[in-house]
Design a protein around this nucleic acid. Structure first.
Lengths: 206, 206, 206, 206
DNA sequence: CATGAATGAGGCTTCATTCAT
DNA sequence: GATGAATGAAGCCTCATTCAT
């Protein structure tokens, strides 16, 4: 009755198990046997669904990107209010949802690293380029929206600000990863205050 | 009498050769034999100076951190003018000096990744924690300096802004790494304009 | 009622598919999956008819031997005329029928090789021993027949000549396998002329 | 003092060990570990001298061909007397020297098999083609020599006879491999008698 | 009977590290 | 000190075989 969904399910099971193990032990430190054990399948089964360790890693990456994108889109949709409020809410929501899965952050670092390694560079680099570009577009259009509403100064370069904000979020999580005492959420929130003030149009002084 | 310096020289030669190879091939993809060839020494010689591949990698990291710190300190020292000007100049100088050695950026990614791998986590994580902390202090004190001068609003949390800026610089380079068409220098410059505006004290209206 | 013949059919289908794949890829290079695909059945089905890859290979061998023997016997039956003519006709017929299935010759090489491998040695070696022995008998009796007719010299050792001829045919095909420009048929024909002259009784000189 | 010859020696040691193991267990049945043990070196050492199991196998083949060629050439050189005598002596010498290393014959069968397997086909097939061609030339020129001396009939096609003889020797050894009671040496000797009679010029009857 | 997804033993190969020279 | 040949532990991947459906 559910036969057809079996295969897909097992593929997902393996991907999620792999995500967990890769996040914990890193790419090089991960054994296919570990993933198999974590997924509750035999070693050989993994090769029924993926051609190589590297392919599996990339599949984890794709799964991860999709999940993250979905997350961002959901966050955006839920936003209301002024552009400033929406920007702050987005920042907050992203940082919080990431904090809840901070163990997954090491996966991101593995992905970065993969995109630097000669062997996997190509596919990862392209995917990151596109992912970042998409994300910048989303934030950029949010900022342009604020300009059109007269909330933000029109002379600001929305693309640059978007790129910087996207980067800031990444990098605050990175610092949070290194330092348990560092709080990315409140740091981001305070910084957003400054940025939004920097973006704000001069109050009309009639 | 010159013996000591000989030894030190060869150690440095190895470290810099290793830095190059690690940057090009990634940690896992690098063979000790590659490093030996690049350094123009025998494979065994490397083990005269380092206990293991991992130790050598960490030595590269330390060398890299020292070189980068020196760079930052030189940049800072050279700065003059208002806090805003110094902040902008710092941003510019950092981004430019990094752009000149973008091939080394993949090394940073390898270091990040190493700090996520169970095996090397501890030493790398601590070093990064301290490195980031130091860097944030530098930027933070620059901002506090601006507050004291009355340039920046006193209610701003200098630490948060410093953390965010440090992160932004990192992350813009990261985006530049992924996308050749992305220009971290001008993006940073434009963003700094917004941030500085956000930091600026209200103009006294007497 | 027809069930039995069904089963036999599928067994044959598998054997012939296997023959083709073994001939193309060699024993070690052949996957059970390849055979299943070639035969148009599921992998598991093969194990309904054969206990192991090796058993299947041996079944292919037996099928092959039977087919070849049938061929030889048919050739022999069809022969008429003097012993010399029959010998020449046999040689010709064998070489030609082999040339038409030269792709199957690599199967023979696989069988030879199997008889050298410790694992399969026993069954293959015995079968080859018996096969060659039978074939030598056939040729030998043809030669003895020529002696009785007074065509061939009586002091010739028919067994030795038979063994050598059987070997020559094999080995000319082998050389043809290695070299597309080598023509086993005409080479065999010319050589047979020499051999038959060597066998011939002195012409009665009255 | 003998340092330079070390490497070459070890390569040879490995090749000869490999020849022994391949002859005993077949290509597929041979483990690199077996060869290493037989050669008295570590498994890894083999990969210092050869890139893969297949390369090692081919190196064994080349070594084998060279050794065999040397053997044939030595046999030829040593020959004197009439063409018939030299042909008979060559046959005898080959068969005897092969009989002494019948365990190596399974190697030849492995080589044949390799030349049938899609994977190794090319290099083996070419080498065999050339090897057989060379060998045929040698025998052929021996026969032509007999024609020039007036020993053999001039209308005989020396190439065909050479090819057939070369093949016969191979194939008699093959039959000897299958059957311990089969004696390739005397079989060859008797057959050579017939062939030489077939080649012989008519005695001048003046 | 037929299937093909699942399995895991097994083997080739890599490469950090050692150590005799 | 310097070297690089030798090593063998370790891990990815293959594929014959099984068995639940």
């Amino acid at each position: 009755m559910q036969n057809k969904s079996w295969r897909k399910d097992k593929r997902s099971v393996i991907i999620e198990a792999a995500a967990h193990v890769f996040a914990t032990r890193g790419y090089a430190g991960t054994l296919i046997a570990d993933i198999a054990a974590e997924a509750g399948v035999g070693k050989g089964t993994i090769y029924e669904y993926f051609n190589s360790k590297e392919d599996l890693f990339f599949a984890v990456f794709e799964w991860f990107v999709r999940a993250t994108e979905a997350d961002v889109k959901v966050s955006i949709q839920a936003l209301g209010g002024s552009a400033s409020e929406r920007l702050e809410a987005l920042s907050d929501s992203l940082m919080k949802s990431w904090l809840q899965m901070m163990d997954m952050f090491s996966l991101v670092m593995e992905f970065w690293s993969a995109s630097a390694s000669a062997h996997m560079r190509d596919r990862f680099k392209r995917a990151f380029r596109e992912g970042y570009s998409d994300f910048r577009q989303i934030v950029s259009s949010l900022i342009r929206d604020g300009m059109q509403r007269g909330e933000f100064r029109p002379e600001v370069d929305s693309e640059s600000v978007a790129a910087a904000l996207v980067g800031t979020w990444d990098a605050l999580l990175l610092q949070g990863w290194f330092d348990d005492n560092f709080d990315p959420v409140s740091t981001a929130r305070r910084f957003m205050g400054v940025v939004i003030r920097g973006l704000a149009a001069e109050p009309e002084d009639t």
